[in-house]
Design a protein around this nucleic acid. Structure first.
Lengths: 290, 290
DNA sequence: CACTCCATGAAAACATTTTTCCAAACTTGG
DNA sequence: CCAAGTTTGGAAAAATGTTTTCATGGAGTG
């Protein structure tokens, strides 16, 4: 062979945009359980993905196979090569990137960080913090530092969809005193502070704490000094082989909190989501006619 | 099941003495290339082992299967279980949270997404995209949608530290035409577009593409329509049990790109980092601490 | 040497899978 | 709101796979 014969995975990726909805349904089902989900008969495989047999048949032809048997055979060859190949049992992840490629090193570091973060997470504190975030009696303020501003922004966008009375404190610290002036006991302040810790944020935290605001702090494994005035502190592991720190575990914790908060007050939230959707649809309509 | 269902390997070992010569021939062929050599049709499998189909049929019955299809299915189940093995490593995580706690469900979904994203990543395209991002001959524009704005912001913050001539196009699409006016062939546009895909972004992409700008698109598994005009497209798996989509895998891909870009031009970057550090120290806005 | 036993595969009978065709359901653009 | 174009799955037709039957021939035995 002159060409190294692309894997079925690659073929799917390559043709994904040309696939129809049902075909993608099958493609996803296959990728989720690869390659086992493609090694049974077309009937079974189709039933597992909850699509019809013709759909699968059409799709494998789009991928360039003459028919399902050829597709089946290609998967089998891959499996064979994988098992008997020089690399005995490669990790499922990043299987295609060469050994030592940055992607592999990066993936390793990230998985470690996520694992560390999770196993150091106190789920009771998590639940308490979520209750606090879901409590709409007080207002919710969100703020981040130089790097974590983006996370604060992300948090704001989502919390705004979930609940009312959310404020994103811009990272320009000059305006913070105005916000503090508004804060009352019972309000919540969600803060992000990773190294290098910012004195501004600490001052802000102290002022807010004095006013009886409950502070939820998301920081790194070395813990920002804000810990001392925060109600709930969560540490995220952030080290990667790089000059800067990774915020993936931070992001994960944040998303988990958003998901939990949403679940906490689902009835209220659902209504907000539906209204929001309608509004977006309306703006789309405007655009259509312009 | 009360019985742990013995593997086909075990069954062969157990019944080996009862097998005839030709049957052993097939058994050995299977064990040599396990389980792939047993996952094709009985005809092919028999031909590969250089025995007749009835031999194989008789043998699988001796092993206790009703027929070849049942044998095939058993092998498939084993394969499936084997593959989902490594994912189970997550069980070490969040061991303290109760079964079914949101944290556990969330962790599962996130790990799946990261795994999917990684294994569908084309590392050659990744390397090419990184080269493009590290190329300071042209300018680098960054833009995101309603939700991904935060990611674009994060990207901007980091790329600004790494290289010169980086622009964050604010999410207010009214100002985009001004940016497009400035774009030239050789410039790079890093776009984030996850569902629901935004028509504004698509228009922007089309305009930029017309001007010869290279577009790097980070999207979800269903692929934004921008794909068609983008130089490099990367798909991130984003589904979580929730009303919204997770952007952790998106963030991971982004960070990986940042890390790789930084490595690409490290000499230049290091100097920038040092100068940046000095500047922060001078403003005393940030307290130095490791 | 003749007889029996039984492993073996060719081929027929049977079962299932795969493909093709078509009509219904859905989308999209005017 | 309609019409043209897609997408989708049901069902029949074609192809393939699986099982059974049975004839052959080799190994062991009296």
């Amino acid at each position: 062979m002159s060409k190294p014969a692309p894997s079925v995975r690659e073929l799917i990726r390559e043709h994904y945009s040309a696939l129809t909805q049902s075909e993608r349904k099958f493609a996803n089902s296959l990728l989720e359980n690869y390659p086992a989900a493609g090694l049974a008969s077309i009937t079974i495989v189709a039933a597992n993905a909850d699509v019809s047999t013709p759909t699968v048949a059409r799709m494998v032809q789009k991928l360039g196979f003459k028919g399902y048997p050829q597709f089946h055979q290609a998967l089998l060859k891959e499996l064979e090569a994988q098992v008997s190949g020089p690399t005995k049992r490669r990790e499922n992840w990043a299987a295609e990137a060469p050994e030592g490629h940055l992607l592999n090193r990066f993936a390793q570091a990230v998985t470690d960080n996520l694992g560390q973060t999770f196993s150091n997470l106190d789920y009771e504190q998590f639940d308490l913090a979520v209750q606090q975030l879901a409590n709409t009696e007080g207002r919710l303020f969100v703020v981040g530092g130089r790097i974590t501003r983006a996370l604060a922004d992300y948090a704001f966008t989502h919390f705004q969809a979930i609940r009312q009375r959310v404020t994103h404190m811009t990272s320009s610290s000059a305006t913070w005193p105005h916000y503090v002036l508004d804060m009352e006991a019972g309000d919540t302040l969600l803060m992000f502070d990773v190294r290098r810790y910012e004195t501004n944020l600490q001052r802000l935290a102290e002022l807010a704490a004095e006013r009886g605001v409950k502070i939820i702090l998301i920081t790194d494994q070395w813990a920002s000094p804000i810990t001392s005035v925060a109600q709930h502190t969560f540490n995220c592991w952030v080290e990667i082989p790089s000059a800067w720190d990774s915020n993936i575990s931070t992001m994960m914790l944040l998303e988990a909190m958003i998901a939990a908060t949403q679940e906490e007050g689902w009835d209220e939230t659902r209504e907000r989501y539906e209204r929001l959707d309608e509004l977006f649809d309306m703006t789309r309509l405007f655009r259509k006619f312009s």
